[in-house]
Design a protein around this nucleic acid. Structure first.
Lengths: 217, 217
DNA sequence: CCCAAAATGAACCGCACGGTTAATTCAGTC
DNA sequence: GACTGAATTAACCGTGCGGTTCATTTTGGG
């Protein structure tokens, strides 16, 4: 379950690889927190997911909330990293916007654990997220992408003059997030069709359509 | 905190009003579950919110999950009731659709406890919602409203021929739900502007715009 | 080889929390 | 006004869980 890349290949090294243990704990904790929430997660169960003891978790992360905070921070960093790697250079504004919507839609779908952590964090009124000041600086790359796209779109006359990048981000996030976050209640209430392959393709197309048609002058 | 309407005004009646107690417990439990989630909620705290004992809760609802289920069911019923009271008779399709979006947006904003219960239920993969077969029959009134609007809109030639009421409901719900559910993380990441009065008005307008412009032929 | 510091293991602790037992009070009935 | 069943209270219980103690092993430096 846990290969250790150990930077210094100290030959017969057998145990004692703090960084790998830390990383293992983080992964296991992410899964456990995403599955059961903060109060629902059991420290014991996190330890049992990997080959370590409860003791180690408190040793490295202090307490349960400290571990939760570490998971949250790592996850946000990783997601923002992925966001920043989307390259929209050289695309016309409408094309760029379409690609951004499709990317966001797909990226949310591909990262349900992150979605669940954000849901959980909202249940807690973002109390823990607020304490992560390291994150404050790196405000999402998606916003700056949208700002560039909007500026270009307005300059080219293909966007309304009063489109707001922030509102656009809100709309794109809303559909992409809801699609994953509320899948279970939605399918229970209205059937599973929208969550099969064709249904998802349709929702993706319609999300693109509603965003693109809303920015037109 | 808890006036009792007692059907039979038996003069000096002092206590012993089961229905009122049940209703009190339900209200207190809704608040507690909405605030802390299923595992985070404390039965003791629910009892302390009103003037009753932990024992009463188990007496009336069996166990913690039974109480949670009762809260969920009552809340869904109440929300569907409110939905069904929206009257769109005599409006042109586009106007009707606009009213429906505005109503949904406002209704979500006005019922944060319901939103939080749905979030919590999604964390639990809708496990408890699925067990509420009483609800299965009464599938949302919003869908049938949308079906009527879409039929009229297509007949009048103001809607695309392939708009799907279900997809439309998905989009409207997504924005309305996200707006409340993710307020805390969104404002932490991107500032509070969108959640002040003017910001909310703007989001409401833009939600309407994106839906209306997406159904046009 | 020795020693201090870091890392780990095993067993333990206090208590909060869901749930129960058993006794008491109330409302209506004859 | 004694009887009955429903409603209510107070006290209790078992244990799961977050967190700790203490001892032991491993690592790296002189």
């Amino acid at each position: 379950m846990t290969e250790k890349p150990q930077k210094k290949p100290s030959a017969r090294s057998w145990k004692q690889d703090p960084e790998a243990v830390r990383a293992d704990i983080l992964r296991a904790a992410r899964a456990e927190f995403a599955e059961h929430g903060l109060s629902g997660a059991r420290v014991q169960d996190i330890a049992e997911r990997i080959k370590t003891s409860k003791r180690m978790i408190f040793y490295y992360f202090g307490d349960k909330e400290g571990l939760y905070r570490a998971v949250l921070e790592a996850e946000y960093k990783s997601v923002r990293q992925a966001e920043s790697e989307l390259n929209l250079e050289g695309l016309a504004p409408l094309e760029a916007l379409q690609k951004l919507v499709e990317f966001t839609f797909d990226h949310h779908r591909a990262n349900p654990e992150f979605i669940r952590l954000v849901m959980i964090e909202n249940i807690h009124n973002a109390r823990h997220l607020k304490e992560l000041q390291n994150l404050a600086s790196t405000s999402s790359a998606a916003i700056s992408q949208l700002e560039r796209i909007c500026a270009a779109g307005k300059a080219a006359g293909v966007f309304r003059a009063d489109v707001s990048p922030l509102v656009l981000h809100w709309q794109i996030s809303a559909m992409s997030f809801f699609n994953v976050a509320n899948e279970n209640t939605f399918r229970t209430n209205f059937g599973a069709d929208l969550f099969a392959a064709e249904g998802q393709a349709q929702l993706r197309r319609e999300a693109v359509r509603s965003i693109l048609s809303a920015v037109r002058p």
